[in-house]
């Protein structure tokens, strides 16, 4: 019995039970909600969020109040860069991927340097970087058109690639497998948990803490850049601040996945479930026929309710 209770309290289990319940609720409210095509569409949207959340996840796992508020800005920037580099031509896809990854890595590097060398708290550093990125977006937007996605990229994101499933979902599954392998089977992954649970002990044990932290922020920037690229493929062309919503949504997906904001505890599989959960919830709210105001109130209240299942802090004890 206690084993079942333990099982039921695993964040992953909670997330999947909630996902099943929400799908059922959606199907009851609007028949066809849980149909194959609709679920695939939900998964495409979830994969965009999930890819951003992968980077957010490693930064948070790395601890010391690790958080990346600049991901939304990087997503928007990457969508613009990609749109302009490829500008509707398939031949431009590879250069676009390289350009986006470079931009993501660059801003991640700046975040990492500020956090490690100057010891600025990650929240402050990445918040400031978000402001810089938003300013940069305005500059770029004034100078050049937003650009178009190449048909190859749009096809990859929206059309079935293999077994009737779009390429981006395969990509997400691959990222999920790689993240699980990286976190649990490599030295790099073990070191993330090490610096996340006790930075000082990790340092004494010879972990290059600063380099690790810089690498984590660069990883986060590059994942956000990939998501921006895919987002361009999904939308066809980029529009103002297309990535803004991903900042806090990615943090919520990580929390719903059972990763502690204190660092050192959690994993990516749960985050994937968290991203799906968040997207389904939003989707149900758009199918239900209520005002924007009611939708937001229900969304906020539901988020609070769901948080009750996850990572509540421990009660104070003397």
């Amino acid at each position: 019995m206690s084993r079942i209770l333990f099982f039921m309290r695993q964040p992953l289990v909670v997330a999947f039970v909630l996902i099943a319940l929400l799908l059922y609720l959606g199907q009851t409210l609007s028949p066809g909600f849980a149909s194959g095509g609709q679920v695939l569409r939900l998964l495409i949207v979830a994969s965009l969020l999930g890819i951003v959340a992968a980077g957010q996840n490693v930064v948070i796992l790395g601890g010391r109040e690790g958080i990346d508020l600049s991901v939304g800005g990087v997503v928007s920037l990457s969508a613009i860069i990609a749109g302009n580099v490829m500008n509707g031509a398939d031949s431009g896809i590879v250069p676009a991927i390289l350009a986006c990854l470079a931009a993501g890595a660059f801003f991640g590097l700046l975040n990492g340097l500020g956090v490690t060398l100057l010891r600025i708290p990650p929240l402050v550093m990445t918040l400031g970087m978000l402001g810089v990125l938003q300013g940069l977006l305005v500059v770029i937007r004034m100078g050049i058109p937003s650009g178009r996605a190449a048909p190859g990229l749009s096809g990859f994101v929206t059309q079935p690639l293999a077994a009737g499933i779009p390429g981006i979902i395969w990509l997400w599954i691959m990222i999920g497998v790689l993240m699980a392998f990286m976190l649990h089977r490599t030295v790099f992954g073990h070191r993330i948990y090490a610096i996340g649970s006790n930075e000082h002990a990790a340092y004494m044990a010879g972990v290059p803490v600063r380099l690790m932290r810089i690498a984590l922020f660069m990883t986060s920037g590059m994942f956000a850049a990939i998501a921006g690229l895919c987002l361009l493929g999904y939308a066809g062309s980029s529009f103002a601040n297309v990535g803004e919503q991903y900042t806090l949504a990615s943090i919520i997906a990580v929390v719903f996945g059972g990763t502690s904001l204190a660092g050192g505890k959690g994993g990516y599989t749960g985050t994937m479930a968290g991203a799906i959960l968040l997207v389904i919830l939003q989707s149900i709210l758009t199918t239900v026929n209520i005002d924007e105001s009611g939708r937001q109130m229900v969304f906020g209240a539901t988020l609070l309710l769901l948080m009750m299942f996850y990572g509540r802090g421990r009660a104070m004890r003397a």
């Binding site: 943090i251 919520i252 929390v255 906020g300 988020l303 948080m307 802090g313």
Partner: peptide, 11 residues
């Protein structure tokens, strides 16, 4: 309720 301040106040 001991929810994490960043996500709870965002909600």
């Amino acid at each position: 309720l001991r929810l994490q301040a960043i996500v709870a106040t965002f909600a």
